[in-house]
Design a protein around this nucleic acid. Structure first.
Lengths: 206, 206
DNA sequence: ATGTTTACAATCATTCATGTATGTTTGTAT
DNA sequence: ATACAAACATACATGAATGATTGTAAACAT
């Protein structure tokens, strides 16, 4: 039994990996530290050495990923764009592909939206998702507003409803995909969904 | 203190109302029967008299509502339709309005999708939502398939992706609406979203 | 070589929710 | 009036999870 720095870091990682698995299977509140410890091949003592409590384990997991909502339309907002709707379209499809390619992110994202309870007593997980969603919504609004000023927003949409509808669709896409154990291709469905929505937001050239 | 039949039924209702409130605030796993009892102005004894355990309280709550997924495109599937996509469109908008008008349904629906954990160990709540979603998906597929056979499905969609995309958007709409404490108009956003999606699925007359 | 700290394991005490068992009051049938 | 059952309240017993404490072997610094 050796306990070098690298060993410690390794058990820390193993604890996190075990936590991800157990949280995914039983939900956060249904997972005891004992279960996580035994899955990781250690005792609770090891967990308590590396983390303060279960919440800190969860936080450590969360910090490992970037939410799709945080990645989407990231940057490129300050200066104007000649095609804001096109930017949303491309970036969104890119984000979907990023998520589809990263199993680790999928796991933790699934834990955040399916394995936690969204209660009024906001956990940090819920808070982060809420914040990320709010910021995503603001970004979408800015871009769609640019399109509106350029006269390229279809008349059936307002800036707010368009941003909200797009946000709902994307979140619903991710949620359904993870909830159904990835039973369909997010990329396929996502791309068509995004193109259709953005297409409907584009004012048709008369 | 009287204990007539009506009194018993009343306390049962009060327990359920308290349970809905507490579940909504703290999530299901974060709510003890003691909290629910004190909120209802009774002791745990009363709860155990009317219900077997917490799960049965939750089940009783769930049985009070019909899920939007269960209501949508309900019936009217056996015989053919001249405008299947139009049927989806109208029915979906109707379902959104139904949910928007029923606060009780909103509460319980919110508990089901936000206050519970979707784990592999499927709770009956998760199971019901999963089943309802699966059935909704099948219904959508049937209707969209009819449209496809009639040649009215736009070429950029397949039957499966169209059904899945529509399902994702609707679920995302409800989820976002409840998660943001109904910070926007589901009816407004929902109607535009539905019309846009169905519009994009309609093959344009050449 | 030795002391000190690291990185845990093992043990223990406490809390908390649950389930059950029992007590008590009131309605109701006879 | 009496007996019984309904509708709870109260008290208790249990187990699970937590957090804290202690023990300890190995690594590392001196």
């Amino acid at each position: 039994m050796r306990r070098t720095k690298e060993d410690a870091a390794k058990t820390r990682e193993e604890v996190l990996a075990a936590a991800a698995a157990v949280f995914y299977e039983h939900g956060v509140s249904g997972s005891s530290l004992e279960k996580i410890a035994s899955r990781a091949g250690v005792t609770r003592g090891a967990i308590y050495w590396h983390f303060k409590d279960k919440a800190e384990v969860l936080t450590a997991l969360h910090s490992e990923i970037r939410l799709p909502q945080e990645t989407i339309v990231d940057g490129a907002l300050e200066h104007g764009h000649d095609d804001p709707l096109g930017l949303i379209e491309e970036q969104s499809i890119g984000v979907v592909q990023l998520l589809a390619d990263d199993e680790h992110q999928q796991r933790i994202f699934a834990i955040m939206i399916l394995g936690c309870e969204f209660t009024e007593i906001r956990s940090d997980a819920a808070q982060r998702i809420i914040t990320a969603n709010a910021e995503m919504y603001e970004k979408l609004k800015k871009l769609i507003d640019m399109a509106d000023r350029q006269g390229t927003l279809a008349s059936c949409w307002t800036v707010d409803t368009a941003a909200r509808a797009f946000q709902c669709s994307m979140n619903g896409l991710f949620g359904e995909w993870l909830r159904t154990n990835k039973s369909f291709s997010v990329v396929d469905v996502g791309e068509r969904l995004v193109r259709s929505l953005i297409g409907s937001m584009r004012r048709q050239a008369a």
